[in-house]
């Protein structure tokens, strides 16, 4: 009632205008990307950037897929799946200890691990590089798993500890009366009950690691061992000035996440926001 008609009218105009404006800002780069992938190299130089491609030509995609692209994909899937499984199990175990067990230094240790969230991973790069060479893991996709799991642990432990603190103490006590030791309580009660927390952790880390660049860049060097973010990098070196082909690689590497996103937007948005909504 006190809202003046003018404010309401501005609102009615401003909301869609601003909403659509940002939509344009978001989508224009993607439009450019996808459109260009259907152009030939020749076309990308000669025609106007914003001109539609002459034909819906998948030749660039075919070109990329005929190369080692699938090897990169396979490596990515393998590294990310193994890492995420390890992250979920290991951080859930630690979180259970922090959330539910009484032992000396519980809080101190938790604080220390959580503080690991702000450590810039770059400081670990050289030592891990040297260590990896030393262990004979250099240039193997498996070299990535250790650093991936370790650097993901602080935030994952933090999220899951917060989550498990919400699980009623009585459930644990009921389980103890039902004859469960600490391990049975964890695996039969806490782990299954942490489903939403676990999926948040899995989604967040899955996306982060799927896109991880620097460790992969430093610890692997051959086409046969590298992951998808490096596919872009390597193709960029190889195709140099074939913009449509390079953008086809970019499109293809982004596709898996976009497809996953199409199926579970809410969950993925929530997962990506993990750790920021609390604390």
């Amino acid at each position: 009632m006190a809202t003046s008609p003018i404010t309401r009218a501005t609102g009615r105009v401003a909301v869609p205008v601003l909403g659509l404006f940002w939509l344009a800002v978001t989508t224009v780069p993607f439009l450019f990307m996808v459109m260009t992938t259907f152009k030939t190299q020749q076309e990308s130089y000669s025609s106007s950037v914003w001109a539609l491609p002459e034909a819906l030509d998948f030749v660039n995609y075919a070109d990329v897929l005929s190369g080692p692209f699938l090897t990169y994909l396979k490596n990515s899937v393998m590294v990310v799946v193994i890492s995420v499984i390890l992250i979920v199990v290991i951080s859930a175990m630690a979180a259970y200890a922090f959330a539910r067990m009484r032992f000396r230094f519980n809080e101190a240790l938790f604080g220390l691990i959580v503080a690991g969230m702000i450590v810039p991973i770059h400081i670990t790069l050289v030592p891990i590089y040297l260590m990896t060479r030393h262990m004979g893991l250099y240039d193997s996709p498996f070299a990535l798993i250790g650093p991936y799991v370790a650097t993901s642990l602080p935030i994952s432990v933090f999220i899951l500890t917060e989550f498990m603190r919400q699980i009623p103490k009585e459930l644990e006590e009921a389980a103890r009366l039902d004859g469960c030791g600490p391990f049975a309580i964890f695996f039969k009660v806490f782990f299954p009950l942490s489903g939403p927390g676990l999926s948040t952790v899995a989604i967040y880390n899955g996306i982060m690691l799927w896109n991880e660049f620097i460790f992969a860049y430093v610890l692997t060097s051959s086409t046969s061992t590298r992951t998808l973010p490096l596919a872009i990098w390597d193709y960029q070196g190889q195709y140099t000035s074939n913009i449509p082909a390079i953008l086809a690689v970019v499109t293809l590497t982004s596709l898996p996440l976009v497809v996953a996103y199409a199926f579970g937007q809410e969950k993925i948005v929530k997962g990506m926001m993990a750790g920021s909504l609390k604390g």
Binding site: E173, R176, L177, D178
Partner: peptide, 27 residues
């Protein structure tokens, strides 16, 4: 606790939310 031959009923019931009634009782 499990070896004391006692059974406890909690104020908030403390049923395992991820198990059916049958499984809760059988656990």
């Amino acid at each position: 606790p499990a070896d004391r031959q006692v059974a406890m009923v909690f104020q908030n019931y403390a049923l395992y939310p991820h198990m059916s009634v049958y499984d809760n009782m059988a656990f």
